[in-house]
Design a protein around this nucleic acid. Structure first.
Lengths: 350, 350
DNA sequence: CAGCTGGATGTGAGCGTTAACATCTCGCTG
DNA sequence: CAGCGAGATGTTAACGCTCACATCCAGCTG
């Protein structure tokens, strides 16, 4: 027999206690897995709980303990593959650790919005806040925040005081750049993300240092904003420059979506990939293998990022001072990269 | 002067009351916007709140009111564009209405997992649960659920007893099919989603009825699983059939990702789109305009879905019996569709 | 066998808020 | 000017739980 179907009054600990013939405190002890409860008493209580279908009221518990076993997740633009994936990893790790996740999706990555979101989470008595954002002002807000709970940043590559986990963007960018140089390209052009994105900057840094290490010229950075459409715009310009005779044979783009946009222009302009120009993206979207041609890209393990975020939170909650390593990225080589055109072979599709 | 920097003890209502020279109850009245507080008292209290940086403890409020002003969102696979987007709309609408959102991401869409998630939400004292899932067993679980809070389904197209909002999948599918027929194709093939997806079935139904209405033959349905890779697999088979002389000139795919996979095979096989075969997708991903060629697709307004989900929740909470209309989809025509090959023009790219 | 120790259990208080009710003070009306 | 109603405020009691402490009952030791 399950729960008293239509009893309006919700079950409370005292109901369980009455049924098991013990005090409410003993029920509490059983619920919270305390020691010093006689085995048979414990079993009796557990049976009562099961029969009644009792679940403790978390609000009451939160009131007295001050902890809700909830993690607040604040993020911008969850519609992107990366953040969504990270969130997935985070939620599942949190759940495994007995925490639930409350979300706040910022419309804009301003310090004020960030502060406000954290404030609301604090009022909600969350145990910790994880910030999933990579823009400067949000990061700035995070730094200046004086919250009464641990606040950890995920995916912010920077060396902050604030504890953070992230993918090693710089290494990823070097991997991409080196791959192209090793194929014989004289240099590698770069389409970066927005200037106020820490990740974008880290990728630029990696790209630049790899070029410099190889003694290759460092072309001017082109700017996109992560969207396919910005990749398309940059592509127009690039195609024009190539037509004008400029020696562009390899491009590293700061994400796959911009690469898609670029791919689209190049196709329209009759330029072959990788015949005329090689492309490397970043993120390795699930779609990347099905681009035309399949895109060489730097894979980031977003879910792992989420998991580590939770790890870090738990460590902070235990007062440990964990400083997690960056998650290593991996280069996935596909058909969008090849050697530079030896002779300008007209492999285009008229 | 903001908050007493390093005072360990958190602020409570009584602190504000003391500072404003009133009772805690008056503070409560001000906080909750009650009438019958003298204007100057109200102002004094508000100033005290601002000066102290006080925020009411939501757990305590939840304990006494039984409401947390929180909506529980349960979903599977948030990593897809659609659900992520819907979640975005939902969160922002919820926040606008003064609700926060707690999430639970199911690993698998089973009835048990669903039931468990809802249970946890109930223990958390959420005010309502929104289920963002389209699979049969989850829907089944939803139907059999006897939760003490409103549970609404989003995106489940079915005509359930359980209140739901959704996009009109069937109309979307008819739009796509009609477009292809109007271009002159004799019939339209369909690559569907998984059999246990309600959306997949609705799209099949729309496709079929449009074909029947037009007196066109109804080919056997091909199955994918929403992934680009399944689209790729189906594509292989399709290409072989076309090579064998079968008359396939138009394909409607149940989502854009599968269309991408199909596009990729067709390109490899040297079949032109739309020269040899026209393609229509579903969802209109932000990437769709940059596919090669740009994909004609049925746009769903996912964010609107989220907003309506919240609307529905609020209505239920007020005891209203709102039965929202389905969100209308729209066909976005791009370059992947055209008339069937009049003469088999070898427009392929060798 | 008194006296102790420690495991098992119960009792009472209090977490910070809201709701219900009590009170107090005006400004009217008759 | 007594009396009354309504608005403004205060007082008290929950809400359901955990924590600190009190109690009880063995089973020991000396």
């Amino acid at each position: 027999m399950q729960a008293e179907a239509a009893t309006a009054r919700p079950l409370v600990m005292a109901d369980v206690a009455a049924r098991a013939g013990v005090s409410h405190q003993t029920v509490s002890r059983v619920v919270n897995g305390h020691h010093s409860v006689a085995p048979d008493t414990r079993e009796r209580v557990q049976r009562a709980i099961a029969e009644l279908g009792y679940r403790p009221n978390l609000a009451a518990r939160a009131l007295v303990t001050g902890s809700t076993r909830t993690i607040g997740l604040v993020t911008v633009k969850i519609n992107q593959y990366g953040p969504a994936q990270t969130m997935l990893g985070l939620e599942s790790a949190a759940r495994a650790a007995g925490y639930s996740v409350s979300i706040s999706i910022l419309d804009e990555a301003t310090a004020a919005a960030m502060r406000d979101a954290v404030d609301r989470f604090v009022a909600q008595s969350v145990d910790a806040v994880v910030a999933l954002t990579t823009y400067d002002d949000a990061a700035e807000a995070l730094r200046s925040l004086d919250a009464p709970v641990p606040v950890v940043a995920v995916q912010v590559g920077g060396a902050d005081d604030r504890p953070a986990v992230g993918v090693d963007q710089e290494t990823g960018a070097r991997l991409a750049t080196r791959h192209l140089l090793e194929l014989g390209h004289r240099t590698v052009h770069h389409v970066a993300g927005p200037a106020d994105s820490q990740e974008a900057r880290a990728r630029i840094a990696g790209w630049r240092s790899e070029l410099e290490a190889a003694g290759a010229p460092v072309p001017a950075v082109m700017r996109g904003d992560w969207t396919p459409s910005s990749g398309h715009a940059v592509g127009r310009e690039l195609a024009a420059r190539m037509r004008a005779g400029e020696d562009v044979t390899a491009v590293f783009l700061a994400n796959d979506q911009m690469a898609l946009g670029l791919l689209s222009v190049l196709h329209d302009e009759g330029l072959a990939v990788p015949g005329d120009v090689s492309l490397v993206g970043f993120d390795d979207l699930p779609e990347a293998p099905y681009f035309t041609p399949p895109l060489t890209s730097v894979r980031q393990d977003f879910a792992e990022l989420g998991r580590r975020g939770v790890q870090l939170v738990l460590a902070r909650l235990n007062g440990e001072d964990l400083h997690p390593d960056a998650v290593p990225p991996a280069l996935i080589v596909r058909a969008s990269t090849g050697p530079p055109p030896g002779v300008p072979a007209p492999r285009t599709c008229a």
